[in-house]
Design a protein around this nucleic acid. Structure first.
Lengths: 223, 223, 223, 223
DNA sequence: GATGAATGAGCCTTCATTCAT
DNA sequence: TATGAATGAAGGCTCATTCAT
């Protein structure tokens, strides 16, 4: 609170003006991250509505209004969860898209990557939290995030159909089938069960089987 | 409400003394159903929390406290949504379980049936509403509902592994993969898109492909 | 609130850094007391049910939810009224119990003390508010408070019977007779009538007369 | 309401007009009494506020709106409880007032009579229910009832002081002391404890002792 | 940056009472 | 007379957010 005076007493003026500012920026970013992660975990554990700002603040050993130093509102925290989740997924999908492989292989890689993401906090937030809690403006952003992911996955699939690695199928429904399997991971995954990689492999095996062209289908299409 | 005409058509004036009582019972049951269906739809459309009793009452042209003639509390409505959803699913699964078919075929039938259910109000409620809104007592019931469904599906799968119609696989993960695909339908289904039956067929085709033993696998495993 | 002036008078500007914290604590305790006293008075004046939190808040120039900074619920306020009343009574009875006097004298002292307490807010709360408004948990506490007081008074009476200062009588009924007279004060007392001390003397005189052994009974035992 | 027609159709005109009317009047009065007694007991057992009309109706095997055939409102029931209580007390006091006895004896008789009344439903209602639940109009009536009783008792006491049977004392406080003891009975009396008569005797003995002039005071002043 | 205190808005629920039948 | 259904009014409580310090 009245740290100013104390700093004058204890501090070294040079450090007080320069270093701390950088440090503070780091500290500030770290704290913001800590707040968000705590929020994300509580949102997942209890639901967004049943998590109040006091819950979050208490677990961070600060008080409710202190949260407003880092986020302008509760729904901004929620939006950030979605944004980070989307960012992670997007990053993986972009990488896969650029790889010079068949559509089937892209889908397989996506499954493995996305399965792993579903076992992370922000990944799970993307599929378990309800964007309708957001105000109109940010709501639209999140919906765009989700459409974006969906479209990209559809592109993998339709690319596979075109390059012959994937059977002719209803791209939209197929995409939904894959996405549903994967999203569900966010609901049931628990650290003490099967490992994220294990889950990714198994899901890739199961889901790819229904897509691969017979002739090109190895016994285990994910190897 | 518009019973008058119907009474004139069907009714016998002599029965007038008795019938009203029966009719009232029907009316009451009908009204309760109407309340619940409206509640379910609003819960799905806006989320449970963002739906207040006024919303429900207004759309029914009654006032908020009138709802308490039919349900003791808001969360009782929510529980009933889950209960009806579970009831429908259970009914289908029981029928499938009794059929003298291979495990693979049971899974295929389940996929078609469950896909259809996901396109109904109470079916979607089962997977889209959050049971954690419920008080402890009924929360446990709903969790038991969900475990029950999960166990039954696992039995279909493990039965198929045992009878040789399904490849050796991680039963738990496989069940999750199937359930996830299907549950997701409740989130994206819209009446103007693909028909429930169409969805069921496509999903059966895709999901079964990864399970069927090669030799026994026809081109379209669900025929 | 009007601490400003007082601070100017009493305070030392140097202490300003520390004192506010202490002062705030005091303020907080003071405010809590003020809330409770206002609540107690309204409960007495209008009855617990007919007093709503708005009534209390308005008279304190705050808003209804601000009350929740000090009490977790309306019934917690009620319980505190009972608790403080009990505390005051208990304190007096404990002191009397320790005094090296006859049972009769203890009863006489109790009458005077209790009569005075009945003319205070929390004292009157003990006998005029209905503990059945409380939830099960705290209800039992209050009933224990009341049983406690009753038992202690019975002990004074039975002690007097044993030490010969009080005639043989039905201890239970006698205790009820005394307690009833005294409790009733809480219902009729008004500041502009007889003074608390006056009431205590008169009641002691009247009530003791029926208890004292003849030989030891002065004409007016309270003079 | 629109029974007229049906009566014309089904009824026998003679019976319908004469006998049933008397019978119905009796029935009606009986039912009204039953309603009131049930209400009184619930008011005492749970408090007026916590007793809702459903509670009363249920215990009578009728429905809530049926109560409105007998009483215009809930507070009319409450008022009737007070009125009956007052009536009973008044009746006894009037009888005592007319008896050619000393003031002391009148007080003694009053104590015995009132103690008994406190063990009855409507007697207890007089002292345990809160007249402030009533609307302004009837509230004033009940307050008048209570003042009336108070005045009459004061008259007994002051009469006794004048006729020399009672010591000089503060008539008002003395009356309060007696009334308080007696009213309290309504709060603690239970059928399985001391009998009403027993209580009356004991209370008369205790309370009279402090009033009787020494010379005229027999060992047991109430004989 | 951080805090204690306060607020406004909103929501579920209760209940006496009314009304058509 | 009696009932099922509905209503208006009110009350306790929660919580994100603001503000002075």
């Amino acid at each position: 609170m009245t740290q100013g005076p104390r700093k004058l007493i204890n501090g070294n003026e040079n450090e007080a003006v320069w270093k701390p500012i950088k440090e503070r920026r780091h500290e500030r970013a770290d704290k913001k991250s800590a707040v968000l992660r705590k929020a994300a975990r509580l949102f997942l554990a209890q639901g967004y509505n049943r998590t109040n700002l006091n819950d979050i603040a208490e677990q961070l050993n600060i008080t409710k209004p202190a949260l407003y130093n880092y986020f302008a509102s509760k729904d901004e925290m929620l939006f950030e969860c979605f944004r980070l989740g989307h960012e992670m997924i997007l990053h993986q999908m972009a990488e896969i898209a650029e790889s010079p492989t068949s559509g089937l292989e892209k889908v397989a890689r996506f499954i493995r990557a996305y399965a792993r993401l579903m076992t992370t906090d922000y990944g799970a937030c993307m599929v378990r939290l309800d964007e309708r809690e957001l105000p109109a403006r940010t709501l639209e952003h999140v919906r765009a995030f989700k459409r974006d992911i969906d479209h990209r996955l559809r592109k993998f699939v339709s690319g596979g159909v075109e390059d012959g690695s994937i059977i002719r199928c209803d791209v939209k429904l197929t995409t939904f089938a894959i996405a549903g399997s994967l999203n569900w991971i966010g609901h049931w995954y628990k650290p003490k069960g099967a490992s994220p990689d294990r889950i990714g492999e198994e899901f890739a095996a199961r889901l790819i089987a229904g897509l691969a062209q017979q002739q090109s289908k190895p016994k285990n299409p994910t190897q």
